[in-house]
Design a binder for these strands. Structure first.
Lengths: 180, 180
DNA sequence: ACCGTTCTTGACCGCTCGGTCAAGTTCTTC
DNA sequence: GAAGAACTTGACCGAGCGGTCAAGAACGGT
């Protein structure tokens, strides 16, 4: 499954054939169809696995931090770190969102992640520390920044995760203009 | 080309065959290969066209606004409006970034857009109105927010472009915490 | 009226794909 | 050590792909 993930990420899902995967693994085609119902099912499995991993990582990072704003920050940093260590999977997640067939699975996972962040945002609003805008839109904004910066600077330009995470946190919390 | 764009967006690039496109258009296959060298070339043409369109729209919106911060805001609103009117193309741009073959074309267009935004950000920093962080990272952050919110709320949830643009601008300029 | 260029057709080609399956091998259990 | 379950193989299949091309229609200049 790890090998298939890298092949899919390098070549694209459709251009990568089952034959190519099993050949690279040095096994017969039959063994593939013994463990997976189809090529599509394998891909869905990879997707679900990735979402579980990311979620666990985020939860572990946030642990029992009481400050909601700090929880958001820790979530951003944890996501960025996971994106850094799973470049191939990130590419697959991005591709999956462009195919009608895979979008539903993706959507479910994303909704969970957003709901988590939105909870912290709501708390922040109640405490009067976050401006009173739609928490779901704000959560998605945070998600958008984190994902895009990770892809652009950590993956494409190999910049340090910590540096990029630092700017991402600064941008999400205080925007371009800064707060003082 | 418009028809091919919607087919690619609905079905995905690879699953959509040339036969399907020409049949939907009610023409023979030969006429396709008279105007385009290959399926790939058609796709690249769509990509380049989209980037040109978006750029023109942004430039028109910014026109000769003197305030750099306001230029950024106008750029966000213009992008959001274009994303709203070109859902299919947006999906294609997103797909293209996951295929090694199309990434270079995309990259060039994005770099131009980012360089534009970065210019305004730099001006803002010089004027002391934008915090002193890497202008390129900040520009990408803005781009990430705008794209993600457009896809999520304008495309998927059919919310009003103006409302989403409003929050996007607020988030980009002042972040979650707000500045006062 | 004629001819060369431009444009259009769809049957056709070679190839590769996802998936099947009869056959064989290895592991587990008693 | 026999028997059956679990696993593995790769040749094979029908389907569909991107792309070609001989044939001809439409058009424009003279």
């Amino acid at each position: 499954m790890a090998y298939a993930t890298t092949r899919f990420a390098e070549n694209g899902y459709h251009p990568t054939s089952v034959a190519e995967i099993v050949q690279g693994l040095g096994v017969g085609k039959g063994v593939f169809y013994w463990y997976f119902a189809s090529k599509e099912e394998l891909f869905l499995e990879i997707l679900r696995d990735a979402q579980r991993q990311l979620r666990r990582r985020q939860e572990a990072a946030i642990a029992d931090e009481p400050d909601p704003v700090r929880r958001i920050e820790l979530g951003i940093r944890a996501s960025m770190a996971w994106f850094d260590g799973n470049r191939a999977v990130v590419k697959l997640l991005q591709f999956a969102s462009t195919e009608e067939r895979f979008a539903p699975v993706l959507r479910r996972g994303q909704d969970v992640a957003v709901a988590d962040t939105a909870r912290h945002v709501k708390e922040g609003i109640v405490e009067g520390r976050i401006r009173d805008l739609d928490p779901f839109v704000l959560s998605h904004a945070v998600l958008g920044v984190t994902g895009h910066l990770a892809r652009e600077f950590v993956h494409e330009r190999s910049q340090s995760v910590e540096d990029v995470a630092e700017v991402a946190v600064a941008f999400c919390l205080e925007g371009l203009l800064g707060a003082q």
